[in-house]
Design a protein around this nucleic acid. Structure first.
Lengths: 197, 197
DNA sequence: AAATTAAGATGATATACGTCATCTTATGTA
DNA sequence: TACATAAGATGACGTATATCATCTTAATTT
């Protein structure tokens, strides 16, 4: 049964939303087109009216997941003074609710290893998201332009790394690693802070 | 045709070695028992004389991959003064050859997202490897005990995070992120260094 | 209002994978 | 030396998946 343009757009968004969650939750290979369509309350056959392939869907899902994440980060940092931005980011990125909510979390922490093994098209979209993330973080800092981006990139790498390690480890190990980077967050509260050394 | 105990042990090691590389290269779902056995120059049927399941093999492969990595790290840091240990580790962990060699690299950078979605048994083994890694790094530092481990954990998280992001991104984005953390490595050369702030 | 188009459902195809029963044959044991 | 055992090979089973042809039916278009 044919549906209207608007109905199709709604379906399209429902598919992307379901995919964005499932890819993060179950990984790329662990996510089937059929399951995504079921989660979107559709049958699997209609899928190819919206996307050329699973890869095509993945690109759209990544775009959406990064957009969600950027909004959360931007909102979270908008009220925070520049000196506390990195510490604040680190604390919220490594917060227990965030670590546990894989399906709704940062695509970098949920899908890096999957995207590594994916196509260039997917990696290009991923890279776009990473740059947007770093830029957004850097905009909330002060100091010389080049330095800000480097600091943002380092903090982002540390936060994402810690969350990935924590999620893949047993609870005690996870807690140890998260505690270590949260302590860093505390010292990042007042600049110029000192870190790993 | 039946084989001797020694021959079986050789086969066992060949399977684990092949698996350790394939899991890192292709991920957990991307690695099939059949492919592993083929890479080990065996047929798929003999597999279950050595392991109860694919998960069982994964645990063994993780153990081996971590052991390899620990040896490399230990050897690399044995000649380096304590003040330069973190910087040296960071530089070698993010070196281009290391980043490119997924199959022979650190299990954390290659498999975190896969292990996240695996069983508790696998996560326990992964956690063991992570702790061993952090302990090994911490042993090459100086300063109070508790502090050393935290610094080691932070540096490890940052290095692994950067490599995972770099591998999943397009080349330009990858280079930007790696450069940012390598600059950190330079400042880590002389303690007490300052970092992200 | 008639003709055309396309959204979504159904069903099928081709492929791949984990696992195991069974067979062969050489090893280790008595 | 003869028997029991088990390593590895072969082949099969059940299941799951991406993709697409086809069908139905409602929405556009003329």
């Amino acid at each position: 049964m044919r549906q209207s343009r608007e109905a199709k757009a709604v379906t399209h968004q429902a598919i992307v939303a379901a995919a964005a969650r499932q890819f993060r939750e179950r990984g790329i290979e662990g996510t089937s087109v059929g399951d995504v369509m079921r989660a979107a309350n559709r049958t699997h056959g209609g899928f190819y009216r919206h996307f050329d392939s699973k890869e095509d869907l993945l690109v759209a899902a990544l775009g959406r997941a990064f957009a969600e994440m950027l909004e959360v980060v931007d909102r979270g940092l908008s009220e925070v003074p520049a000196e506390q931005a990195l510490g604040s980011f680190m604390r919220s990125y490594t917060a227990p609710e965030r670590v546990e909510d894989v399906a709704g979390s940062c695509p970098v922490a949920a899908l890096s290893n999957d995207v590594l093994r994916s196509t260039e098209v997917v990696q290009a979209e991923f890279g776009r998201g990473v740059r947007a993330m770093i830029r957004s973080l850097a905009e909330h800092l002060d100091g010389p332009e080049a330095e800000r981006e480097a600091r943002a990139a380092r903090t982002f790498a540390m936060a994402a790394g810690a969350v990935m390690i924590a999620r893949a480890s047993d609870p005690e190990t996870a807690e140890r690693v998260l505690r270590a980077v949260r302590d860093e967050a505390a010292s990042l509260a007042s600049p110029p802070s000192r870190t790993m050394a």
